[in-house]
Design a protein around this nucleic acid. Structure first.
Length: 248
DNA sequence: GGTTATGTTATTTC
DNA sequence: AGAAATAACATAAC
């Protein structure tokens, strides 16, 4: 579930609990002081990138689903409970996730201008941050949460395809216009992902990620571990241009 | 049974 | 000291 749009979707699904008081806190997480959460009223839910933030009057419960995280709303799943919040009317259960307790004001912790799903996302700032990492490969840079919070491996592959850019292109070799287009696509595709999540059509959503054939050229996609992160890359070597330094 | 996978952080090594 | 590599954690599907 981990990419940004899915967190926004989760926020929409859990807003039913806003205004309700937490009547019980359970789970094996040791990062949350249960006694400080119990009895508190959920005032707001926010997301930052791949994180969801449950806000109470004086503190925040942060959940990150990591690789394998799952959740259940008004239900349970048969596996170890990481964090369970029971409200006056219903409950919210998280599994295999990373939970944290934040006491500081959110503004001191998060910069929403880096979050592709945020109204405050700043494309120009993202471009400047990218340019500050000139020798990075674009496939690694796209997954940098301090530049494009919320972008995960699925969105990464989709935006590279749409911008016709080879994942192993080096940042400083890519024309600025293409970088700008790529950043714009990060926003567009993230919201498109959210739409397909709402409609329940995520499986049909992907053009290249986990796919076999290039939708443009109808030739097999290459599937390789790319970049320093060695994450799965799905790309077409015919229509996605490689920008790399000329050697010698 | 081995491999792979939507991610991040802590620890170790150079 | 600091960057870079490695390990660690979690779990289901093929």
């Amino acid at each position: 579930m981990p990419e940004g749009p899915e967190m926004v979707f989760l926020k929409e699904q859990t807003e039913q609990f806003i205004g309700q008081v937490v009547v019980e806190v359970k789970g094996r997480t040791r990062n949350i002081p249960f006694e400080l959460v119990k009895g508190q009223e959920l005032t707001q839910i926010r997301t930052f990138g791949k994180e969801i933030l449950f806000c109470f009057h004086n503190n925040v419960v942060r959940v990150h689903l990591m690789f394998f995280g799952k959740y259940a709303i008004n239900g349970e799943v048969n596996r170890p409970l990481e964090l369970g919040l029971s409200f006056e009317d219903g409950d919210l259960n998280f599994y295999a996730c990373d939970c944290r307790f934040l006491k500081e004001p959110l503004e001191a912790v998060y910069d929403w201008s880096a979050d592709v799903m945020s109204e405050s996302f700043d494309q120009e700032q993202a471009l400047q941050k990218l340019l500050r990492q000139p020798t990075q490969l674009i496939c690694d840079a796209l997954l940098d949460q301090s530049i494009l919070a919320g972008v995960g491996n699925g969105i990464k592959n989709e935006v590279l395809f749409r911008a016709r850019l080879h994942p192993e292109s080096q940042v400083d070799q890519i024309p600025i216009a293409i970088l700008k287009d790529l950043i714009k696509e990060c926003v567009t595709q993230s919201f498109r992902y959210l739409d397909s999540k709402r409609e329940g059509t995520v499986k049909e959503h992907w053009l290249v990620y986990q796919q076999k054939e290039c939708p443009r050229d109808h030739i097999p996609l290459r599937k390789e571990k790319v970049g320093k992160g060695q994450r799965s890359g799905y790309f077409c070597e015919k229509c996605q241009v490689l920008f790399h330094p000329v050697t010698g």
